[in-house]
């Protein structure tokens, strides 16, 4: 058990000041905008909660939120099982381990707009590797700037490319921490591969998987740069996720009030879902 020692506050003070400065001041600005209306010249009028009502009732917000949940749901449904499968198949020791780990982590170290630009080049219909292969070798009519389905498939595949490794590395960390004795015991009992997975490997991965889902949820829900660079939210509005829509309202149309209200609603949703995951995660924390 940890000691009760309120000296701990001195230790966290620098962190508190730096993060609070970055988090609270901009947050207060956003709250301030969300309850006011302006016609320019820095003149503001009290608006109350009108913006919140307007956003919550607007079809545009519902559509963007729906697309956001669809995107996050789809990438979680693909990346988590895929990550587990790859982690299970990875070598546990030897020369290939660091090679695998480093090459797998590489996509995560590429600046997000470069990821978008790279996939843009990769999928150009006539001169991109993937675009050329699909159009000319397989004869599928593929152009993500025209076809919403192709655009969706592309941003999903891009995110799978970009972030599945996070799930793989987390699960792998969980797997290598299983002592060999467990496997030997399972072998003596004549356990099948499935039972080894179900009763030894899965329980060990449960905690890291919760972290993986938490991180992937937070990051995919806030995703902006990659799809923006790749599709710009198009064709039409088909890939306009929440962040993209928010930036369009805030910086494109300069509707600060509605944008601020939308930011707060958006943040509240992320917070709520993440809190649920976090509670689940810490409940399983043995320490």
């Amino acid at each position: 058990m940890r000691k009760v020692n309120h000296r701990g506050w001195f230790f966290v003070l620098p962190v508190l000041i730096l993060v609070a400065f970055n988090a609270l001041v901009p947050m207060m600005t956003v709250v301030n905008y969300s309850v006011q209306e302006t016609f320019g010249d820095n003149v503001f009028f009290w608006q109350g909660l009108d913006w919140f009502q307007q956003i919550l009732r607007s079809d545009r917000f519902h559509a963007a939120l729906g697309r956001q949940f669809l995107f996050t749901g789809m990438i979680l449904a693909i990346e988590v099982p895929l990550g587990v499968i790859i982690a299970l198949a990875m070598p546990r020791q030897g020369f290939w381990v660091p090679v695998c780990l480093v090459t797998m982590a590489l996509p995560m170290l590429i600046p997000w707009n470069v990821v978008g630009a790279m996939w843009n080049i990769f999928t150009l219909p006539d001169i991109g590797l993937l675009g050329y292969f699909l159009n000319h070798t397989l004869g599928i009519n593929y152009d993500m700037t025209q076809d919403p389905v192709a655009a969706w498939a592309t941003i999903i595949v891009m995110d799978v490319w970009h972030w599945t490794s996070l799930v793989v590395l987390l699960c792998y960390a969980g797997l290598v921490s299983i002592p060999d004795a467990y496997y030997q015991a399972a072998k003596i009992d004549g356990a099948s591969n499935w039972s080894v997975f179900r009763y030894i490997q899965l329980p060990k991965m449960k905690q890291v998987l919760t972290i993986a889902v938490l991180l992937r949820f937070m990051d995919s829900f806030n995703i902006y740069t990659e799809p923006f660079v790749l599709t710009g939210g198009g064709p039409g509005n088909s890939t306009t996720l929440l962040s993209i829509d928010l930036v369009k309202i805030a910086l494109g149309q300069f509707d600060l009030g509605p944008a601020a209200a939308m930011s707060l609603i958006y943040f509240a949703i992320t917070l709520l879902v993440s809190w649920l995951f976090y509670t689940l995660m810490t409940r399983n924390d043995i320490r």
């Binding site: 930036v247 943040f267 993440s274």
Partner: peptide, 14 residues
């Protein structure tokens, strides 16, 4: 941890 969750797009202007 909540600060990891705040969408950067929300805070850009402030």
């Amino acid at each position: 941890l909540t600060n990891r969750m705040a969408p950067a797009a929300v805070f850009a202007l402030p």
